[in-house]
Design a protein around this nucleic acid. Structure first.
Lengths: 210, 210
DNA sequence: GAGATTTAAGTACGATCGGTCGTTAATGTA
DNA sequence: TACATTAACGACCGATCGTACTTAAATCTC
């Protein structure tokens, strides 16, 4: 359990597979991700997966967790380095846009694809995705609440409503950046949130002008 | 060509199949829609399709057109009955929300699913979907422009930017209404657009208060 | 070292996929 | 009436899907 060479090698290839799986799933979907293609993409054999996961569903569940961790690292963590309040809220939005712009995942966003795929399909994967999304939205909402408490947003603001609007603008980028105008979408999503926050902020100086 | 019983029967079953196809595709996706399941859903045989379409892709293309026509009937047409300007713009948003609320399509929105599925997959279906989406966004933009011309929206408004924000809030409902809180999402999307328009409108009386 | 355990590959399975082929019955045209 | 066209069908094809069973080799425990 401690310094185990077998386990180490196993964990490493497990990690490689999951990273590939999340990348592929962000494009093709969690179900469209077939074991055969994942095998050729990782250079292993199809049957090798069953040494790590009992079936495909468990691999999907682990992929969801892996994607959630990646999201935390790339989006949540950078935002937490900004001072709490409206600046952190906007930093969160910007970190998200950067995640898309940099093309961290080839399909743009793992959770977006997973959401669309499993919204009508009950089961463990649905629940796991739903929980992750719920936590994400809850996190945005907390940032709004905190900004209000700090006096950096107007008192009348409904945290859930504002969080919803910010999330909508972020989510929209995933769609539009691929099918239609790419850069434009990023700029619009940034400006929309920025202007909205500046309008609600007693001290707009906290935020960039443009 | 004129009073042809064969053709009539053919067209009728064609219509039945397309309606079913669009409904199924709104849930499972245009590709997840398998010919076998579509066959059992319509009560016909798999091979019967090839009397109407040379291959699956052509059926998908027709399904896109059919969905576009349905969207026009259910969303665009009702909005056009409202007076031009900011009222029509909001009527458009409300018609869209009604489309989702009524559950016209079991999966919520055909184009949303199609978009996610084909954004990374080039080909004729991609192009057809992209064109339909482009026309839709252009339509929203035109309504904004017209509202500005009529003096019902502030001069400084960027039509593309406002159209983008309205569309984002509408699109967001498709995701959230299924996976998480349903009704809430509809209310938030409506309120967000309403407040945004009222804030930009010199004569807010044109719009409902809440 | 012997034996157990684990990663990984090989092979084969039933199911389902999109699609072809040949056929039948109905409906049209001449 | 004779012939062409069409909708619709059942049977079948090769490919691919997820997965079960078996085997090989590496590694840890004793």
């Amino acid at each position: 359990m401690t310094n185990d060479g077998r386990r180490l090698r196993g964990l490493r290839s497990r990690e490689v597979i999951l990273a590939q799986a999340v990348g592929l799933a962000s494009v093709e979907g969690l179900d469209g991700l077939s074991l055969g293609r994942l095998a050729t993409a990782t250079g292993t054999s199809k049957s090798g997966f069953f040494a790590h996961w009992p079936d495909k569903e468990h691999l999907q569940l682990d992929a969801v967790d892996w994607a959630a961790r990646q999201w935390t690292e790339h989006v949540v963590a950078p935002a937490l380095r900004a001072p709490a309040g409206v600046r952190r809220l906007f930093a969160l939005h910007e970190a998200r846009l950067k995640f898309y712009k940099d093309g961290v995942l080839p399909g743009g966003c793992f959770f977006f694809t997973a959401q669309v795929e499993f919204d009508d399909r009950p089961g463990p994967v649905h629940d796991r995705v739903a929980r992750a999304m719920g936590e994400w939205q809850e996190f945005i909402r907390r940032q709004v609440t905190e900004a209000i408490a700090l006096g950096e947003l107007a008192q009348g603001v409904d945290p859930a409503q504002l969080a919803y609007e910010i999330d909508a603008l972020g989510e929209m980028v995933v769609i539009h950046s691929r099918l239609l105008e790419g850069q434009e979408s990023l700029v619009r999503a940034r400006r929309a949130v920025l202007q909205r926050l500046r309008a609600l902020c007693p001290d707009p100086e906290l935020l960039p002008e443009d």
